[in-house]
Design a protein around this nucleic acid. Structure first.
Lengths: 203, 203
DNA sequence: ATTCGGTTTAACTGAATGGTCAAAAGTATT
DNA sequence: AATACTTTTGACCATTCAGTTAAACCGAAT
């Protein structure tokens, strides 16, 4: 039954997502995934032939989910400052709901960098830069942004948003000693990071 | 012979460091480590009884190496601005020589957060804050730093320094599309990050 | 009711892997 | 040179794990 089939596949996918995020590709066990999905291990191999197939499916979906969160900024009709604020709000909110995603993706890509090539090969980077340049010609001059500093600024923005989640395991423990609550810290980071960047790039 | 013993143990340690950094705890194979060290697999177990022992030894050493790079700032007799510049120069230089370390440590801690507790339990965080407060009382007022914003600023500084290495696998591929060289990017980041932070916190 | 497609299960396989053991090789001590 | 010790090795073991197989199950079409 196709109805049923989608259901099992969905169950497997969800279970695999949890286990892979938690244990990584090498640490994940097919038996563990099967147990979580409430099915037999053979059924895993019936739906996804090998562990690598299953991982590839899960990883691709999650990575796309993550990276597509970066792109809508280029489409919106907002000022640069508004875009920066919009990005931090949206991106951090997304990660609040998927806190293990950043660490998982960073780790798996570091471990196997070829993986990313498939994901971003269909992005036109030249166009992307041209788009920004056209949309914000005047603003780029108003701020300290040149073709030279753009990579620094882009990675800085990504840093401020992603790092707290990638380092969650450390920060939670360190914060405990300072009496800081991680969730509140994250909540206030949406605005702090935006303010910080805007302040830094304003002439 | 103790001379020889140190040598083999050192060889094992170096081999294990490379393999663990590359493959992680779960992905690393004892046979692989033995091969790289040019010794028999049994000898691994003679020096470090189990895989976990060996990992614990390697991880602890690397993590200490990493975290101690954060502390000397608190001892130096420099202005806050000088300290920030000093930190980015030193910390990024250190990671240039150990580019896989950040990703490795972040990942292993996320996977097993208890690990970090052992490492930082002997750091007195209350003292640390008092130290900063006393050393830079006037400066903290001069800049936009309060006890409220300190966690945000500390993690921001860490972000800017660590993230490019934690995301190395992604950035290298993305940069390629922009014609940017990762090593040059890192080199210029030492100054950029310092400028960026100082600009942002200056009233 | 029977056949037929897809689905699910239990039992199994073979390779990989962490770890052990007893013997060999090497070194220091007397 | 004999003894006692540590270091190194190769063969071996038990377990874990991804993946296979053949049979049972189940709902629908004939």
């Amino acid at each position: 039954m196709s109805e049923n089939e989608k259901l099992t596949e969905e169950k497997i996918f969800e279970a695999a997502t949890i286990v892979f995020e938690e244990e990584g590709l090498t640490g994940a066990r097919m038996q563990n995934i099967a147990d979580r999905a409430g099915i037999n291990k053979s059924l895993l191999h019936y739906y996804f032939r090998t562990k690598d197939h299953l991982f590839e499916a899960v990883f691709t979906k999650l990575a796309k989910k993550m990276f597509t969160k970066f792109t809508p900024i280029f489409e919106k009709n907002l000022s640069l400052e508004e875009k920066i604020r919009f990005f931090f709000r949206e991106h951090i909110s997304f990660m609040q709901q998927n806190p293990k995603l950043p660490g998982f993706i960073l780790n798996e890509i570091n471990h196997n960098p070829q993986r990313i090539q498939k994901l971003i090969k269909n992005i036109e980077f030249k166009n992307l830069w041209v788009t920004i340049l056209e949309q914000h010609k005047d603003e780029l001059y108003k701020y300290n942004i040149t073709e030279e500093t753009l990579p620094q600024i882009m990675t800085t923005i990504a840093s401020l948003s992603v790092f707290p989640f990638a380092a969650k395991g450390i920060l939670e423990v360190v914060f405990e000693n300072f009496g800081v609550d991680f969730d509140k810290y994250i909540e206030s980071r949406k605005e702090f990071a935006a303010d910080f960047v805007i302040k830094a790039i304003t002439k």
